[in-house]
Simulated scan of single mutants.
Amino acid sequence: MDLYNGEILGFSLSKSPTLEFVIDSLKQALPIIHERAEYHTTIHSDQGWHYQHNSWVKTLKQNKIFQSMSRKATCADNAAMENFFGLLKQEMYYGEELISYKALQMKIEKYIDYYNNDRIKQKLAGMSPIKYRTHASQLAA
């Protein structure tokens, strides 16, 4: 998630918490980060073993990205993502029948597209994350 506008830059789904699962999301986000970042980029995460693994740390260093992990029982750095997960569950999952993994995957992909392109946020002047970024870039030009 880009904290500038709340846009989801990369995501992956997995039936189990593997290293590939988190690296895949990072690799999706890297081209976007390189394209947009004018200044120092920081990635916030929890202290999960994935984010301490040499492959994750090495990928961040190779891409000149600073790693930030909150101390145990301190979730402030990751609060924006936790809020997104709460919205996702509330708006597309709760009250739904259990479905196949593939159907769930498609539903989450559709929700993220909706969230980025259509779901308005009051703090973004009533625009979706992508519309807000586009609007702001037009003003800066």
Rank of each mutant, 00 (worst) to 15 (best):
M127N: 02
E20T: 10
E35I: 02
E7Q: 13
G86K: 01
Q47D: 08
K123F: 07
R119F: 11
H53N: 14
Y115W: 03
E91W: 03
A80N: 02
D113G: 10
S12R: 09
S12V: 13
Y114A: 12
H50F: 04
S14H: 11
G48C: 13
P129D: 05
D24A: 11
I65Y: 02
Q105E: 10
L30R: 00
K58T: 15
P31G: 11
S25I: 02
L26V: 07
S14T: 14
I65P: 01
Y39K: 13
Y101L: 15
A79G: 11
N117S: 08
K102H: 08
L98M: 13
E109G: 08
H135N: 12
A103L: 13
T59I: 15
I8K: 05
G95W: 06
A140W: 12
H44F: 08
D118H: 09
F11T: 06
I33G: 05
A37L: 06
L87H: 04
H135S: 13
P17D: 10
R119M: 07
K110A: 14
Q122S: 08
Y51R: 02
M92R: 07
E7L: 06
I23E: 07
E97F: 02
S12H: 09
L87N: 01
F85W: 13
E109T: 07
L60D: 03
T134K: 13
K89E: 05
L104Q: 04
A136K: 15
I65F: 03
I23D: 10
T18G: 03
V22R: 07
E20W: 06
T42M: 14
E20A: 10
Q28D: 12
K15L: 12
G126M: 08
S12P: 10
W56G: 01
P31H: 11
D118F: 02
D113E: 10
R36S: 05
L98K: 09
M127I: 11
L60Q: 09
L98H: 07
D24M: 12
Q52Y: 10
T134A: 14
Y39R: 12
Q90E: 11
N54F: 02
K61I: 06
Q122C: 07
E91Y: 11
S100L: 11
S25C: 14
G10H: 06
G95D: 07
